[in-house]
Design a protein around this nucleic acid. Structure first.
Lengths: 280, 280
DNA sequence: ATAATAGTGTCTTTCAGACAGTATAGT
DNA sequence: ACTATACTGTCTGAAAGACACTATTAT
């Protein structure tokens, strides 16, 4: 086994939704999905952008390690975290064999005010955009293989990065199995581009049947703001009337309004923790 | 840091569905969900039952490690595998810090004929039963905490084991977060009882919207057999007419019949790899 | 008054659940 | 003839999608 000891790390894909002002005073601010990345100070991938994370300590479990490393590198605490996927390709870290247990994290704007670049690490929020480059289907044996190649584009004020990811899927006589490869990337360390894309995919699929979106919302919000967040993540527009009908049971009305917007004020809502009980 | 190197392993929860004969010649055979366990020859947990698995080698990725260890310990190849969850509680292995990346695996009866106890390991198929012991909800802060305690019972011809698992869920102002603890167990090594229970939960939730069930079916099957597998995993009975309507687009008719069953013969079907395309 | 958003009513289609009913080999 | 399963038709109500409509305030 003469190799160096394999090491186990955690890495966190932290998403948030931010507003950006619109030119017209009447228009609502638009929304963007952002992910937090840190500039690496050391080799390998020096000066490239990487997910917050680090090595797991002896006396903590994986969830704790993710929360701790996030706190150490960004000052953020009490962030929603859920395990995403564990990546262990042999060559993913050029130094030594490293298995990374990754987490999906969500934060709202209020939580981010505590953010501070601790320990001198440079952190940046990048807007996230995904676009489909190619989609193909090839017959193979008794079934077929599908491949979707997409481009993840990350943009910050003074930096840019991208990754091209190919998600494959073989469907045979018994069902489907999937795989994923990083075709190309620029500005991103390790396989982190692929991890971000997978995190986005997870977020996209879970938002439809869970309350995940509310981790991205402030304490009080308008239904339009909520809808914007859904549209942002799903990447398509929703019809207002239908959206409100579907989310009505997850929110509680407050008697406050959002005023001074240059148009009719919108009622503020809050998340209803008890929504599932009302389902039956 | 003076600790021994943390090691990374893979462990696989392999499920299958088997038939057992019925007393009455006319009755259809019943079905059972089974999981594969190996008797440990060494300390720790000597003589207890454990999931197939082992240490990840330097030049393989995690999927390969899962497939290899399964092959080495059981002789089984070409089994469906998907990553389940990564477990890393500090004390889960009394020897040294061990992080286990676990896999959910599914096999049908035909694939299992290749099974052989390689390397002298004793493997057994245990029937799996889960029952809810307690369910509670406690108000806590602005939200509440829910706990479900369930018992997993594993039965083989000449062995028995169980585990009591508590799945917690805290729902606060922003949404929910979950945790899971092994309360008690007997006959099972490490935290493997909890892993099996989590695998079952994953299977139960994915079977409703994916084609996962077909990995448990033979090449050709009757719709009643398919329904039995769904009922087995979901733990409740389904109405035949509705079940057939919902699964109709995932199967193709063949022109063969299952005969000599003491009653009307049933048409045999096969999985339709192209079912998703027909959805729109 | 007007621009821009806030919010509602309702038609249609689709789909899940329930259940009653008919069909057919094997003994 | 009888048993156990195979398989179908259809009613109901809930929910998703589409879209037209009304309401309100800052400027």
């Amino acid at each position: 086994m003469g190799d160096a000891c394999t090491s186990i790390t955690v890495d966190t894909v932290l998403f948030t939704a931010t507003s950006h002002e619109e030119e017209n005073y009447r228009k609502l601010p638009g929304k963007e999905l952002r992910v937090l990345l840190l500039r690496r100070a050391e080799e390998p991938f020096q000066q490239q952008w990487a997910l917050p994370g680090g090595t797991v300590c002896a006396r903590e479990n994986l969830d704790e390690a993710a929360a701790r490393t996030l706190q150490e590198e960004t000052g953020l605490e009490r962030i929603y975290l859920e395990q995403l996927y564990t990546w262990g390709a042999p060559e993913r870290d050029p130094r030594c064999r490293t298995v990374s247990c990754t987490y999906l994290a969500l934060a709202n704007a209020a939580q981010l005010e505590a953010e501070q670049d601790a320990t001198g690490v440079v952190s940046h929020w990048f807007t996230v955009q995904e676009s489909l480059l190619e989609e193909k289907k090839v017959m193979q044996g008794e079934g077929f293989r599908q491949e979707r190649t997409s481009r993840l584009t990350l943009t910050a004020d003074d930096a840019e990065a991208y990754a091209i990811i190919r998600a494959g899927r073989y469907v045979g006589a018994n069902g489907a199995r999937t795989d994923r490869t990083l075709v190309d990337c620029s500005g991103l360390a390790f396989d982190h581009g692929m991890i971000i894309q997978y995190g986005l995919e997870r977020l996209r699929s879970k938002i439809e049947w869970t309350d995940l979106a509310f981790h991205l919302m402030p304490e009080r919000f308008t239904l339009t703001e909520l809808q914007q967040v859904y549209e942002l993540i799903l990447g398509r527009e929703l019809l207002t009337a239908n959206f409100r009908r579907k989310t009505a049971h997850m929110v509680q009305e407050t008697n406050a309004y959002k005023r001074d917007a240059g148009h009719r004020p919108a009622k503020l809502y809050r998340f209803d923790p008890d929504w599932e009980a009302k389902q039956s």
